[in-house]
Design a protein around this nucleic acid. Sequence first.
RNA 1: GGCGGCGUAGCCAAGUGGCCAAGGCAGCGGUCUGCAAAACCGUUAUUCACCGGUUCAAAUCCGGUCGCCGCCUCCA
Length: 493
Amino acid sequence: MALRLYNSFSGQKEGFKPLVDNQIGIYVCGITAYDDCHLGHARAAVVFDVIIRYLRHRGFKVTHVQNITDIDDKIINRAREKGVSCKELSEHYTGKFHRDMEALGVARPDMEPKATGHIQDIIRLIETLVSKGYAYAAEGNVFFSVEKFPGYGRLSHRSLEEMQAGARVEIDSRKRNPMDFALWKASKPGEPSWESPWGPGRPGWHIECSAMSIRYLGETFDIHGGGQDLIFPHHENEVAQSVAATGKPFVRYFVHNGFVTINGEKMSKSLGNFLTIKEILSGYHPEALRLFLLSKHYRSPLDYSEDLIREKQVSLDRIYTTLSEAMEISATSAPQPDAGISLPPEVEDAYTRIRDLKKLFYEAMDDDFNTAQAMGHVFDAVKGINTLLQISKKGPDQACRAAIGFAVSAIREVGQVLGLFSTDPKSYLEGRRAEKLSKLSLTADQIRDLIHQREEARAKKDWAVADALRKKLAGANIILKDSPQGTTWEIKE
RNA sequence: GGCGGCGUAGCCAAGUGGCCAAGGCAGCGGUCUGCAAAACCGUUAUUCACCGGUUCAAAUCCGGUCGCCGCCUCCA
């Protein structure tokens, strides 16, 4: 089984081979800390979280570096509006970002460098570019000369001529070519600034990623990730700066995740459809959001709607319900390997789904991290467990129990890669019930009382009264489940 | 205007040359149940936007048409 991933450089899937055996350096562009994180950030975070988890699961030693941009125009403007310092503003939003990521179950990167912590690296890199003739100073600014770099446009697959034809960049008389971009920006009075050979100023946006990735991962590293919108100009410029400065290849594989739209429209503040991570998590379980984000291939556009996220929440509930029942029944028997299990022929199909889960899951993930397909296999295994559970309920069956135990451990293993099913099923379901109960007009005690009345009626075979009570509770969104062990209840979504 | 992507059942979605076109949601029929719920079984695309071409063989490759979207400016 070989891992294949889509490389934005070539525009196709390529076999993956790290620079150093079993070691991977990956740099993912992080946030600019000036506002709350939204659904788009969630997708990028979860996608790369799963990619990194999978690479580690496969045995690679992964070094994950993710920057935080804590100085740039947007931060300066927002800080001015709010009357706080840039440092205060960026620290405030960095904190919120960390809380969002934690809620989403996204693992912290190994390193999280900040632009302001690497000013000297940045200045040195710019000096190299100037001395090699790739960059020039003008009125306290330093610009990168795109014409000097022959490979410019290789990543975004466009030529300099094409870009200029449709260019909407404003004319800047200090630039030699309109497509030249700032490595260093002279600071205006009142703006944060650092001393440099070109006077007081601050770094341009793209240079920090070159400087920090080179520092922590080396001049050439394996994977660079980010949202598709970063391909141009951000990553194109990073490549130009880095290759020009080091004379070596910069990134071997560029991986870009697709965009999120909301009800078919691009998310934007002016449209009023800007959804923050916090808002979504106030209504849905974090794993439901993860499940939603992973239900489509990471490179395709993903459309968000209430109906779709609710559907994922229901799917997640269903899986946890199955896991909960499975763990109850298999609790007495340790998970057995598949050898020696002999099952009735009618459940062979179910058992095959369980036995093949891991293999199929890895195959799907190996094919450019196809989480949508991988989830299909998980659902197959869930169905397999449910089939075996039915047999088990009819009478104790050691082989079934062993197979169920095996299936639960397999689902939990692949769940670790996806960041799903990490909660104890019992506590998950209790949590969900408490959540739904809080939105109900009835209390748990009232419900129990009504169920008790119905039990009495049923004992007398007074079906009319029993059905009336069922109906009454159904009206309040309570579904009753009768079983030989008694009546349990659930709340309809 | 330039570049790129997408169009698969009521909805979401995988599949990019060849076994009956995964999986989820919703629907319908059945098993179970006093009735239900859950679960399971069966069923729901002779067809992959449309037209033409290549091939023994195409949802999958090529050309064209229509529709939707993204990027080219800060953006995950």
